[in-house]
Simulated assay, not measured.
Amino acid sequence: MPWLALRALTPLVLSTSVLAATPTYHDDIAPLLAKRCLICHSGANAPLGLRLDSLESLLRGSQRGPVVRAGDAAGSELLRRLTGSSQPRMPLTGPPFLDAVEIGMVERWIDAGLPAGSATASRPATPLPQPGEAVDYRHVEAILLRRCATCHSANGLMGAAPEGYLLSSYAATLASDERARVVPGNAAASELVRRIRGQARPRMPYDGPPYLTDAEIDLIVAWIEQGARDAEGRLAPKPVGAKVRLHGRLDAHGKLDGLPLLIDTHTRLDDAPRPGTYVQVRGRLDANGRVRVERLRLR
């Protein structure tokens, strides 16, 4: 964005340092990246190997090459992703995306030659639950954003999110208007878990293998079993009456991969499902998070 256009969008009350001082990596860019980008672009599993947790890593770029070119903001893939000139637009958690002032700061930093500055920046690793601590959204957010939201976001690699399911925020992950994919307190009845375990086909993430590690899956399962708490530790409400759609293997006891199902005379049975067959279950959740089956059919 041209500097004159940016000024037109910027409130006059902005501090002089934001508008006039040349941004540096340590003082200005690193804190911005830590806030909006490092949830995905850090660690060994950073998408395309692009780590943004140090200046050295940023300058190294991704498997596809450099993402910043000193003195050439317009030709830098980092800025193009932030503005949406290249898709998918970043960060994947947007909207909201970076605002005009933040984008302008990155643009000025690149055009100024990528000055490092003198301050030091640090960011703690993705938090892990301590012994006895409940698992909450903070502990699973990085996994979902790094491995799932690349497609399941408003501007993902496949365009619109598959089946409209977004995994780019807590509220979207728990949404149950169309159907519930996460059932707080019942991981086995959660479509999200059945997909990442491979009980339901196709297994997710769609770009696997590699799929999620056992430790990552166990963490997501623990989060759901403990009530799918938000980042402040509040329990998620139970989506009573919400629709569910599950796939898996039916066993001799009428369970779906060990998940008890509530089947009665009102349940519609199609195609003569038998023990050992791969089936689809459609139903609704009762007040205890159990699946009351409305239709059971071969898949």
Rank of each mutant, 00 (worst) to 15 (best):
W3K: 06
L4Y: 02
A5E: 07
S15C: 10
A21P: 01
I29Y: 04
I29H: 02
A30P: 01
P31A: 12
R36Y: 13
L38V: 10
S42T: 04
A44V: 15
P47V: 09
P47D: 08
G49V: 06
R51N: 10
R51W: 07
S54F: 13
L55H: 13
E56C: 00
S57Q: 02
L58Q: 08
R60V: 07
R60G: 08
G65K: 10
G65V: 09
V67A: 05
A70H: 06
G75R: 10
L79F: 14
T83S: 14
G84D: 07
Q87R: 15
P91V: 13
F97T: 10
V101Y: 06
I110T: 00
S118H: 01
P129L: 07
V140W: 00
E141L: 05
E141Y: 05
C151S: 06
N155Y: 11
N155D: 10
L157S: 09
M158A: 15
L166R: 09
A175F: 00
D177E: 15
D177K: 03
R179I: 03
R181G: 12
R181N: 09
R181Y: 11
V183K: 03
N186R: 03
A187N: 08
A187M: 02
A188D: 04
A188L: 04
S190M: 03
L192H: 07
R195M: 02
R195T: 01
I196Q: 00
R197Y: 07
A200K: 00
P202D: 11
M204N: 11
P210F: 02
D214Q: 10
A215H: 07
E216H: 10
D218W: 10
V221W: 00
W223S: 01
G227K: 09
A231N: 01
A231T: 12
E232P: 06
R234C: 05
P237A: 11
K238I: 04
L250S: 01
D257S: 14
G258K: 02
G258L: 06
L261N: 14
H266A: 06
T267R: 09
R268I: 12
L269E: 08
R274A: 13
T277D: 15
Y278L: 06
Q280Y: 02
R282N: 13
L285F: 08
L285D: 00
E294W: 03
